[in-house]
Nucleic acid binder design. Structure first.
Length: 274
DNA sequence: ACGAGCGCCTGTCGGC
DNA sequence: TGCCGACAGGCGCTCG
């Protein structure tokens, strides 16, 4: 499910607090309950429970699609993958079918990791560096500049779509924001990276930033039965708009498959490469 | 270096 | 109504 803007929305929500959920920074984790073993990648169940108890949440950061809870002594890293979700609720609520991991907080509240498809993972580590070592630049980071992006594109012969989805190349884009960015940049997803002109690379750079910023501004996208309060889904230009008219040229949006992923394009605004 | 195929999982939706 | 395949916001692995 979530891509960079959705993960960033979680981060901000937990930092500032929202609705009935208080800010998490400063809260002490009293303990944890693991309901599905596979949701915990590291360390062992026993070690996890004893280590996390008593630690205070000191900061919440993000790297790509990883959400990082900086605790007193460790870092709790969470990757939501396809269907993972996080929220704060009262301990008195019944445990739902897809609750996988519970973090018991103060004042009768708990942080819930809910994940129907069980692809999401949590890690409790002293140092998250090795876990994040393979990630490429964060598109919203100051160090991500057009010159660097163009240089990286120049040495790749992959199609843009799978390349942009590769977290080693850029950390944070997923299927939705990739399709939206390519559409804004008027580039076909099968375009080979090192065939882009400097100008096209600059346009794509701007499109990626634009789409991610707007996603964050709208608190992410909420799709299907996983609802998180964002409304960027109402502003998609191509994603899940097959057979509907392109907002620019009225041509019917097409769904194609690129790199085994469903991909939405305007065949006129984004003509295939020669 | 690159792409395809597949596994990991559960749920929804459309067609018959 | 039930069954069956396609599909789903991700990613790591093997293989050619």
């Amino acid at each position: 499910m979530p891509e960079l803007p959705e993960v960033e929305t979680f981060r901000r929500r937990f930092l500032q607090g929202a609705d009935s959920s208080p800010p998490l920074v400063g809260q002490q984790i009293q303990g944890a309950t693991l309901l599905w073993p596979g949701s915990l990648a590291m360390p062992s169940h026993e070690s996890f429970k004893s280590r996390i108890a008593g630690q205070t949440i000191e900061d919440i950061r993000r790297r790509g699609k990883f959400l990082l809870f900086h605790l007193s002594r460790d870092v709790l890293a969470v990757h939501l993958r396809m269907s993972g979700d996080l929220w704060v609720e009262e301990e008195s609520k019944p445990i739902q079918k897809h609750h996988r991991l519970l973090f018991h907080l103060e004042k009768g509240m708990r942080l819930v990791f809910n994940d129907p498809r069980k692809f999401g993972r949590c890690w409790l580590v002293q140092d998250p560096t090795p876990l994040l070592a393979h990630l490429g630049p964060d598109p919203l980071d100051e160090s991500f500049i057009p010159q660097r992006f163009y240089a990286n594109l120049l040495v790749r012969r992959r199609q843009l779509k799978p390349l942009l989805l590769d977290q080693r190349f850029l950390a944070g884009l997923g299927n939705i924001y990739t399709d939206e960015a390519l559409h804004i940049a008027r580039l076909h997803p099968r375009t080979v990276a090192n065939t882009l002109t400097r100008r096209q690379a600059g346009t794509l750079f701007g499109a990626i930033r634009e789409v991610l910023s707007e996603g964050i501004q709208r608190n992410g996208a909420s799709i299907d039965w996983v609802y998180r309060g964002g409304d960027f889904q109402n502003y998609f230009k191509v994603y899940q708009r097959a057979h509907q008219p392109c907002y620019t040229c009225q041509t019917s949006i097409q769904r194609i498959v690129v790199g085994q992923r469903g991909t939405y394009i305007c065949p006129r605004c984004q003509p295939p490469p020669a």
